[in-house]
Design a protein around this nucleic acid. Structure first.
Lengths: 345, 345
DNA sequence: TTGTAGGCGTTATCAC
DNA sequence: GTGATAACGCCTACAA
């Protein structure tokens, strides 16, 4: 409640002008060292704090970047955000975070909040059923950079940071084939966005390449929660011709499914082999360990933030790669698992 | 790059004053419905966007709350933050998040960043080795509310939101005793802050109450990572007199330890029983499922944000409970586990 | 119901 | 090396 100290207060006390104080505080070269020291000391003494609004208002920028994600509380997202925070913080930027909770409506609200907050740029992973990015036009039209990551949307002005979900899906299914599976099932996510659709398409292609059919019976689409994994297992148990391999588009769901199958005596991977996606810590806990696609969250966040910052600083508006592919990696947990079980004996 | 539209542009276009436009946009009662409509329509037409700095500068508040946490990417934290975001967003507040990465130095930097960003209030979970909160005095002195959660610090002006770690530690150890354990080990975290110290003290008390000794041999202090769980297992395997029960102050570490012990043929819980802490999703994946202390992250976040907002709006500066205890719950996974293993047979 | 005027704190420009 | 001034866009007492 005590009145805030401004540069005028410092100026008055030192018989200087506010302009000089401002320059002194900023380390402007034209201020003598002794004056600068007096200014800085007095500022501290009086308990001065910089007023970033006034500065923002004057400079027309905020040093803030906005982040919109579907959910904050997933392993991948919190890693990604941790990476962004690191990079942004080091560069003197603050981050404002909001979550859409997978709702396009809430996403739209978040967009306009961040728009009004005048963030300097935006890092976005879309809600799963967002099918248009017209809401982002207001940013794009003003040359405020928007970078999509993970759940992306193609737009000539917006860089994308992703992994090659198509190839990863292909590799996952191919891996199961190489292990001898011939009835390979897929449990996939919402097909509105690109991510899960591409994983699915990669899976289909792998099956075709091996002369297998990706039949409808071998497909379940869900929200990929742990619980839906359990339900999927129930469906599998009821099937006449069971799959001998399952590629699940995320680990939590895969593990829910595996646990339920194991509970009913299904041998994994002998009877049904699994490949998941995300390399969730749980994948190393379940037995047998889950083979999965590793996918660098923190790195993706760092890269996204770095890219956004470079867009902010240079004006090379069109001088970027449209799509940045980060390497993913299939973590084959079979071999290590066999080694582990040998050790136990 | 196109010039920003201001209320003056709208005013000019409509032959009104800026004051009227300002009021119209805010829904001020003294503006006629028809005028308001013309204002709002014109604003939309011209692509006006509200300038929150100018408003902030004028109103001396930001509608922003700052959050400082040790790490963003833990289950508990991302739940807690998700809860805060929900509440804050609903109340029209933005959140700015920063992580200390368990470093008191970075924490101090974050504090001053948020101080300069002039957040209206602060939600804080401290770095594990922070032992003084003098850095927060600048907020407290200005009556900017600071609410601590999880990793808290007692200060007459700062509410704390926690669970009863002492009791939880007591219950965990007591549970092991009830299951028949008599050499009960503790793997605890950094003892600088209150959280892990209280869990440890609760454990000690339980042992004393049952006539057992909490000997030094039965204590390991670590950072509680998964990997340190593995190392702890190695230590246990090397012990002459092994424990028959272990209370670990978090699940990740407990599970790292259990997996390694299982790899070496130790039967869990028959030879060594475990109780963890956090109710991490992994606890339901490991076999046998891990008995653990459940601890509501999202709720704690919601409560923290709600409390902070109430402090912002009322001026009941001293009219709050110093410490809010949230209920925790010991999730006994033994019984369900036995049921599950029966089913499998 | 609407308008006038001044100020929130900083910084860039121009002058000295 | 330092100072005076105006401007950033909004809001609110006060006046009409």
């Amino acid at each position: 409640m005590g009145k805030e100290i401004t540069i005028y207060d410092i100026a008055t006390k030192l018989n200087l002008s506010a302009a000089t104080v401002s320059r002194g505080l900023k380390g402007h070269p034209s201020i003598s060292a002794s004056t600068r020291k007096r200014i800085v000391d007095t500022a501290r003494e009086l308990g001065y704090r910089f007023n970033s609004f006034a500065s923002n208002l004057r400079l027309q920028r905020t040093n803030t970047i906005g982040i919109i994600v579907p959910r904050l509380n997933s392993n991948f997202m919190s890693d990604a955000i941790a990476g962004m925070e690191k990079v942004a913080n080091k560069a003197g930027y603050k981050i404002i975070i909001s979550q859409s909770l997978e709702s396009t409506i809430k996403e739209t609200e978040n967009i306009s909040t961040l728009f009004n907050a005048r963030v300097d740029g935006l890092l976005v992973s879309l809600a799963s059923d967002t099918s248009s990015i017209s809401e982002f036009e207001q940013f794009i039209n003003r040359n405020i950079p928007v970078v999509f990551f993970d759940r992306v949307f193609n737009h000539p002005k917006c860089p994308n940071i992703v992994i090659d979900n198509y190839r990863a899906g292909y590799e996952a299914a191919d891996h199961l084939f190489q292990k001898g599976c011939r009835r390979i099932m897929h449990i996939g996510g919402n097909q509105t966005g690109k991510v899960y659709r591409e994983r699915f398409e990669g899976y289909q292609k792998a099956l075709r390449d091996h002369g297998l059919i990706a039949s409808e019976d071998l497909l379940i689409i869900s929200q990929l929660s742990f619980e839906e994994g359990t339900s999927a297992a129930v469906q599998i148990l009821a099937m006449n011709e069971k799959p001998d391999g399952v590629f699940v588009a995320n680990d939590a769901c895969a593990i829910g499914c595996m646990l339920e199958l194991k509970k009913h005596g299904v041998k994994i991977p002998e009877e049904i082999a699994f490949v998941g996606f995300n390399n969730d810590p749980m994948a190393l806990v379940i037995e047998p360990n889950l083979t999965t696609i590793d996918y660098p969250g923190e790195e993706m966040g760092e890269l996204g933030a770095t890219l956004l910052l470079s867009l902010l600083n240079n004006n090379n508006d069109d001088n970027f790669e449209q799509t940045l592919l980060l390497p993913h990696k299939l973590m084959d947990r079979q071999s290590s698992q066999k080694a582990a079980s040998l050790e136990i004996k």
